[in-house]
Amino acid sequence: MSEISSAESELIGGATRQFLRRRAFWNRFAAYWLLAAALVSVLVTVGIVYVLVTESLPFFNQVSLVDFLTDTQWTPMFENARYGVMTLVSATLTVAGIALAVAIPAGLALAIYLSEYARPAVRESVKPLLELLEGVPTVVYGFFALLFVTPLLQTFIPGLAGFNMLAPGLVMGIMILPYTASVSEDAMRAVPMGLREAGYALGYSRFRVATRVVIPAALSGITAAFILGMSRAVGETMVVAIAAGQNPNFTFNPTEGAATITAYIVQMAMGDLPHGSLAYQSVFAAGFVLFLITLTFNLIGFFLRRRFREAY
């Protein structure tokens, strides 16, 4: 303590100058460090775009964009390789479509039930159940789709292939159900009580209040829930990689098997791809398409949700 000069030990509001200087340093240091951490998340996006662009550019030097978007064959391992990405996109959209056909009505019904009908105690215990459902690993859902749901469906639908898009689509629908239901429920619960009371004052039943008042008021939030659900379905990997097969097939027929974009990436990554080969680059080209599709959905969802939050 003796080396501290009298000016240093002078107290300001009960603290020494020396301490206050050190404190101010840490205060500023922390602010920069926290900003840097926040910027890492931006760096991740930059890194993703950088990798996708640089790895798929050489691909588009060899495969024309027109062929890429119009060809209906995807045969990267053949002698005469063809790269029509729509082959993968068709399967991706088919599976996602089936998933949404399950998740939209079921999710909406569940959200209406939870936000308009269920007692708080019920709601409190259902939400954790939904979280548990959300927490099941997707490989497990894949196993279930392939070895439980497909055999089950085959007893009703004789022509159903062992690898098909129907079973993973249905399972994926259940998989994204907790997400779409809880996001729409949040949107519906954010609708001010006053609007509901106005509906009840007109003599509306609960159902009418839900369909005529709450859903229209929460529409942008509910739409966001389904768009974000769609994004998840499009990007989901393991369920389709396991249960929809890995054979690129331009089809919208759910009873057939077909490789989605994600299944293709998994399939190629499993094999030993020579770094820098056209097939290696095709993985990134396909990934780029996937990224653009999900990015579009995510941004629409983000702004719809933000608009909804601003409204209430």
Partner: peptide, 8 residues
């Protein structure tokens, strides 16, 4: 708390 904030 107030003392710790002042480095004591």
């Amino acid at each position: 708390a107030g003392l710790e904030v002042r480095g004591i």
